[in-house]
């Protein structure tokens, strides 16, 4: 472990860390924005849910590197390529979670809301989505952590991130760089995870713990 390398390259490391955070967090957030309406659709129209879940399973099976490559003709060797690919994976993680979250709302609660005269939309926004929030955020946590970790694979098609430290460290046989990359990715992922745990507690004060 060479600490001098770390101090000399502080600004590079900082820049790569920010880039990784960007490549990891943006897909998860876009994934959230898309998966909620998709999940609501699947939970409401039950026939939609089996094909949606099957598609999700198949897409999620595609190795990340292969998906990056498949998107090259359309999106080039760009940040957009990695963001689109990771958004797809985030969707695969989150759509089942949104469906499960909405289905986890207890039937008596749902019926009580209907009986008190909630309209469908107000019931969704005012009762079902808030109650599904813990499960949805659970999915978001997995999506963020996976995206941050997978973003480093984008380095193989030249999209810069902390993955750069792996490739550079390998070419120079310099373990310090690889350690720094590993630690920072894990720390970044866990930090985002903690933020989301905090968000869940703040948003759902009624849920245990």
């Amino acid at each position: 472990m060479s600490w001098s390398w770390v101090s000399v390259n502080g600004s590079l490391i900082w820049q790569l860390t920010r880039q990784t955070a960007y490549l990891g967090v943006v897909p998860a957030l876009i994934g959230l924005a898309i998966s909620v309406p998709l999940g609501v659709t699947a939970a409401r129209w039950r026939w939609f849910s089996p094909p949606a879940l099957a598609a999700v399973n198949v897409i999620y099976a595609i190795p990340s590197l292969a998906l990056f490559i498949a998107l090259i003709p359309a999106l080039g060797l760009s940040d957009t390529n990695v963001i689109v690919a990771l958004t797809l994976f985030s969707l695969c993680i989150m759509v089942p979670n949104v469906i499960a979250g909405l289905r986890s709302v207890a039937e008596p609660v749902r019926q009580a809301a209907t009986a008190m005269g909630y309209g469908q939309l107000r019931q969704l926004v005012g009762v079902e989505l808030p109650l599904a929030t813990p499960v949805i955020i659970g999915g978001l946590r997995v999506a963020v952590v996976s995206s941050i970790s997978l973003a480093s694979v984008g380095q193989l098609i030249g999209v810069s991130s902390l993955g750069y430290l792996f490739i550079d460290g390998l070419q120079r046989s310099f373990p310090t760089e690889i350690y720094v990359g590993l630690v920072l990715i894990i720390v970044l992922a866990l930090a985002c995870d903690l933020v989301l745990v905090g968000a869940r507690r703040a948003l759902t004060p009624w849920a245990a713990r």
């Binding site: 970790s149 694979v153 380095q155 902390l162 590993l182 992922a189």
Partner: peptide, 8 residues
């Protein structure tokens, strides 16, 4: 899920 495969 946080472990970067490539790095390891």
């Amino acid at each position: 899920r946080a472990i970067p495969t490539l790095g390891l």
